[in-house]
Write a protein that binds this DNA or RNA. Sequence first.
DNA 1: CGGTATCCGGCGCGATACTG
DNA 2: CAGTATCGCGCCGGATACCG
Lengths: 123, 123
Amino acid sequence: MFHFRDQDYRCSSEIVMRLVSGKWKLAILYVLSQTSLRYHELQKRLPDATQRMLTMQLRELERDELVVRKVYPVVPPKVEYSLSELGIQMVPLLNALCDFGTLYMESPLRNHSKADTSSVQYQ
Amino acid sequence: MFHFRDQDYRCSSEIVMRLVSGKWKLAILYVLSQTSLRYHELQKRLPDATQRMLTMQLRELERDELVVRKVYPVVPPKVEYSLSELGIQMVPLLNALCDFGTLYMESPLRNHSKADTSSVQYQ
DNA sequence: CGGTATCCGGCGCGATACTG
DNA sequence: CAGTATCGCGCCGGATACCG
């Protein structure tokens, strides 16, 4: 059913989990998939993320080379974030996650009373 | 680039994250995608998972209706775990995760020295 | 055989204040 | 404007022991 050997499958899929595990990473990848943004613009689109968390998540995404951070040496400071090549290649997967999420929520196979689907509220 | 509205996307994809977030969930879904298994057989395939964790992860997967737990009222006890309909529908997504993980690890775009790709060892 | 119960530590994340 | 620094807590998961 899977087309990978045990080792391949478990390692590879868990690598992806590590890449996107973090409270704001999916949201960041999402907004950056639409357009590059400066730090403050990201803040405005993710109003519930604290400065600290937003910076931490961006740093990790940058370290993992899904996001590119470009600093313009001007005053006042200007920093622009965008998806890297790898980040862009990840977009179809993110859409697939979304597709299954929607399928799951709307599935008649699901007993809607059991699973707690409450989630963070975005503006 | 994404084909969802903000709300749809962020909520739906994070639902999936919540479903599979947990140390052994991907591994469990993987082995169950190949065959139904009794508890002790699962233990043998996931030798690094403690009893406590294995049970907890299975209970959550059952609660979220990705896995079915069937109890046979016999002595000694017999319990069999298998993927639910929803769990089976999730398999292509799990493969997609694996595909990107492999792509990511092998990508020439990646600076291999930076990202820490060490992972749990499976037997 | 297929689990629970209890105790405990690490770390992801929040709140708040400060800075080049 | 775009960040650090510090403090603290909840909870995920490990270790160990016990049970119907």
